[in-house]
Design a protein around this nucleic acid. Structure first.
Length: 461
DNA sequence: GCATGATCATGC
DNA sequence: GCATGATCATGC
C-alpha cells in the first residue's frame, strides 16, 4: 500500500532520509538490479526518471504518469532538480526549474490568486542533487532539501515580480501572441519551451497561428539566488537597488525610477549630483556611472539584475544617433559549436546561442555623444529581449557558421554584410589568442555579434 | 561612413 | 590568467 501523508512537515521529514545520500544508499540490492536494467533500456539521460524513483523509493508513493499531485496535500509539489559544482566548490543550479505545461486556452480565464500555477506549485519540496556526467540516477548525491512556500518564504518584492511575470505571460497569450513568447521577456518566472509528447505545436486562443508548447519555469539565475539566500542562508555580495526589499516595486519600475532623474543630463552633471568622480579615461567609465546611478556604489553586482539574469549593456550613440559598435557574445569554442543543433523543435536540444537569445534579457543604458564636446548625455534606458520573429535570421548565420567550421573555411564565416541581424567576428585579446578547431589547428577566438544597425533599430522602437 | 579585423581594460 | 564588455584601427 502506498503511504499517505497528512502534513508538509511529514513529507519534509521523509525527504531527509536521502539527504547527503544517493538512491543506491537507501534501497535494496534487488531494487538496484531492477533499476540498473531499466537504465540500460532508457539510457542515462531520461529526464524525469529520477523524480519517479524518488517518489517510489523515498516517499513510497504510487508513481503515475499523469500530472496529478504528488501528495494529497494541496499545492505541494515535489521537484528533484540538478546542481552543478564549480571550481571554488560552490553549487549552482544546472537548469531552470520547470513546472507543468501552460494550457493556452485555459489560462486566459485565470487570475493569479486562484491560478492553476499557484494551486499546484505554491509549496515546493525542492530536492537538489549533484549532477555528474559519469554517474547514473542511482548515484547522484542529494545535497539540499528544502520546503519553499512561494507566498511566504520569499520577499514581497520578489512575489510581486513573479506575479507580474505571470500576468505578462497571460496577457500575451490573451492577445493571441503565444507564438511570440520568449523566456527572456520576464524576470523571475519564465515561459520556457518544453517538449510535447504528442503534438509539437499547439493551438492558442484568438488566432490560427500555432505556438510552441511552453511551461512556466523559475529561471536558473533566480533559482541560484534561492539556493544561496534561502537554502544556504548566505548574504549576497551584490548591491540591491531596492535596499533591503523595502520598496515593493517591480524591477523595471525600480530601474526606470533610478535612471529618470539623470536622463538628459551629461556625464559631468550626473557625477556632480551623485557627488562622485570617475576617471573618464577608464574604459568602463560609463559602466561605473550606470552602476552608481543604480545602487549608489560602483559595484558591478546588482542584486536585481543578477537574480533576473538581466545583462546590462552600455552603448554610446554618435551625436547623429547612429550606433557604431555591434554587440558581442562570449567567444565560442569551435569544437563544442559544431556538436550543437540550433533548436530541435521539441526543445530537447538547443544551441548556446539560441538559449542566450530566447532566455536573456538586456538592459540598455544609452548615452549619446555631443557634437564638438567630449561630454556625453544619458539619453534613455531600455529593456529589450530578442524578438522571436528574428530567430530564423540568426539561425541562418548559426548554420552557416557550423558549415564553415566543419569544412575548415574560417575565412568564409558569416559577415555583417550578409545578414541583417547577426554576424561572426573575432573576439579574443589579440591575434595570438587562439583556440583549437575540429581540424586540430589553432584559430583566433571568435563570437557571434548582433549587428550595430540592428541594435540601433531595436533601441529606437 | 561603414565593414571588418583587432585589441584594450577590468574584474573575477 | 583569462573571459568579457567595450572600443579602437584600418582600409575600402
Amino acid at each position: 500500500m502506498p503511504r499517505v501523508y497528512h502534513t508538509k512537515e511529514e513529507v519534509l521529514s521523509q525527504a531527509q532520509i536521502i539527504l547527503r545520500k544517493s538512491l543506491r544508499d537507501i534501497i535494496l540490492p534487488a531494487q538496484i538490479i531492477e533499476i540498473e536494467k531499466k537504465i540500460g533500456v532508457y539510457g542515462l539521460q531520461r529526464k524525469g526518471y529520477l523524480g519517479n524513483l524518488v517518489e517510489k523509493y523515498v516517499f513510497d508513493l504510487e508513481v503515475n504518469s499523469k500530472s496529478e499531485a504528488d501528495f494529497n496535500i494541496p499545492g505541494l509539489e515535489l521537484k528533484t532538480t540538478p546542481l552543478k559544482k564549480h571550481a571554488q566548490g560552490q553549487y549552482t543550479s544546472k537548469e531552470r526549474l520547470v513546472f507543468s505545461m501552460i494550457d493556452y486556452k485555459k489560462i486566459i480565464h485565470e487570475h493569479w490568486e486562484t491560478s492553476s500555477f499557484l494551486n499546484k506549485n505554491r509549496l515546493l519540496l525542492l530536492m537538489f542533487y549533484l549532477y555528474e556526467l559519469e554517474k547514473t540516477v542511482l548515484d547522484y548525491e542529494f545535497k539540499f532539501i528544502s520546503l519553499l512556500d512561494l507566498l511566504q518564504d520569499i520577499s514581497e518584492q520578489d512575489i510581486l515580480q513573479i506575479r507580474k511575470d505571470w500576468e505578462h505571460i497571460v496577457a500575451k497569450i490573451k492577445r493571441g501572441e503565444a507564438h511570440l513568447l520568449s523566456e527572456g521577456e520576464t524576470f523571475y518566472l519564465g515561459a520556457c519551451t518544453k517538449a510535447a509528447n504528442s503534438e509539437v505545436m499547439r493551438d492558442q486562443p484568438g488566432t490560427q497561428v500555432k505556438a510552441k508548447p511552453r511551461a512556466f519555469s523559475l529561471k536558473q539565475q533566480y533559482l541560484n539566488y534561492l539556493i544561496q539566500k534561502k537554502i544556504l542562508n548566505k548574504e549576497l555580495d551584490a548591491d540591491s537597488i531596492a535596499k533591503r526589499g523595502k520598496e515593493k516595486k517591480t524591477i523595471d519600475v525600480l530601474i526606470q525610477e533610478r535612471f529618470a532623474p539623470f536622463v538628459g543630463r551629461t556625464d559631468q552633471q550626473i557625477m556632480s549630483s551623485l557627488k562622485i568622480s570617475l576617471s573618464k579615461r577608464s574604459k568602463n567609465f560609463k559602466r561605473l556611472l550606470a552602476n552608481s546611478i543604480l545602487t549608489g556604489t560602483n559595484s558591478n553586482k546588482v542584486e536585481e539584475l543578477e537574480k533576473a539574469d538581466v545583462t546590462l549593456k552600455v552603448v554610446t550613440l554618435e551625436h547623429t544617433g547612429t550606433l557604431k559598435e555591434s554587440l558581442s557574445f562570449p567567444a565560442f569554442d569551435y569544437k563544442s559549436l559544431v556538436s550543437q543543433v540550433w533548436y530541435d523543435e521539441i526543445g530537447e536540444r538547443m544551441s548556446d546561442l539560441y538559449a542566450q537569445l530566447d532566455t536573456k534579457r538586456f538592459l540598455f543604458v544609452i548615452f549619446q555623444k555631443i557634437k564638438g564636446s567630449d561630454e556625453i548625455v544619458l539619453r534613455k534606458i531600455k529593456f529589450w529581449s530578442f524578438p522571436v520573429s528574428d530567430l530564423t535570421e540568426v539561425e541562418k548565420v548559426f548554420n552557416k557558421t557550423i558549415d564553415c567550421i566543419k569544412s575548415g573555411k574560417y575565412e568564409d564565416l558569416p559577415k555583417m554584410s550578409e545578414n541583417s541581424v547577426a554576424h561572426v567576428r573575432p573576439h579574443g585579446r589579440d591575434i595570438s589568442d587562439t583556440i583549437t578547431t575540429p581540424q586540430g589547428t589553432q584559430e583566433i577566438k571568435r563570437c557571434f555579434w548582433l549587428n550595430a544597425k540592428y541594435i540601433q533599430k531595436a533601441l529606437e522602437q
